[in-house]
Simulated scan of single mutants.
Amino acid sequence: MKEATVRPETTEDDAFLRRLTIEGRWAEFAPLPLSDAHKRMLLEQQYEARRHHYRTYYAAADFSVIELDGQPIGRLCVLRSAPTHLLVDIALLPECSGQGIGGALLDLIIAEAAALGRSVSLRVEHTNPARRLYERKGFRETERNEVDAEMVWRA
C-alpha cells in the first residue's frame, strides 16, 4: 500500500473539496428522480452547508487534505482537545476507498491520542461502510439516534 500524506487545507483546495463531496455522495443521490444538474446543485449546497458548519462549530480543528503521490484524494478534520480527539470528518474519493488509507490514518490519530492519554470520538451514519472499520479499530457505540451513532475509542 502506498503511504498517504496529510497537509493543511488551503483556499486553493476548494475545487477539490467540492469535487470530493459530489463524487463521494453521488451514489446516495443517484436514485433521486432529478436531473444530474439538480443533483449536482444539491450536493454543492451540502458542501457549502458542511463547510460553514465545520468552520463555525469546529473552528479550532485541523482541516487537512489527504494526498497520495502529491495528488489530493481526501479530507481530514480533527479537533484535538482534552479529554478526547474528535474525528470530525474523514473522506476519500470513491476510487481510493478500501485500500487501507483511511485505516492507516485512523491508526495515527489513535496513536496520537493514546500517547496523550485521550480517547477518540466520532459520529458515523448507520449505513456508512466505514462503521465496520471503526469497530475493527476498537471504537464502540456510546450513543445512537435514527441517523447516526457516536463511537468512542478508549485506550
Rank of each mutant, 00 (worst) to 15 (best):
K2M: 12
E3N: 05
V6Y: 00
E9L: 12
T10E: 08
E12H: 13
D14Q: 15
A15L: 11
A15H: 11
A15V: 11
L17E: 12
L20P: 00
L20Q: 01
I22L: 06
E23V: 01
R25W: 13
W26E: 05
A27N: 09
A27R: 10
F29C: 04
F29D: 01
P31Q: 04
P31N: 02
P33D: 09
P33K: 06
P33N: 06
P33E: 09
K39S: 01
E44G: 01
R50M: 12
Y54S: 08
T56F: 07
Y58F: 15
A59V: 11
A60V: 11
A60F: 09
S64L: 07
I66C: 02
I66V: 14
I66F: 03
E67M: 13
E67D: 15
E67F: 11
Q71E: 15
P72R: 01
I73A: 05
L76D: 00
C77G: 06
C77Y: 14
V78F: 05
S81M: 08
L86K: 13
L87W: 01
I90W: 06
I90D: 07
I90N: 07
A91T: 05
L92Q: 12
L93H: 08
P94C: 10
S97W: 03
Q99H: 12
G102F: 02
G103Y: 04
A104V: 07
A104E: 10
I109L: 07
A113V: 06
A114N: 04
A114S: 09
L116S: 12
L116K: 14
S119W: 09
S121Y: 01
L122Q: 10
N128M: 08
R131E: 06
R132W: 02
Y134L: 03
E135V: 08
E135Y: 05
G138S: 02
E141A: 13
T142R: 14
N145M: 14
E146A: 15
E146W: 15
V147Y: 15
V147P: 06
A149V: 15
E150K: 14
M151R: 03
W153S: 01
A155V: 11
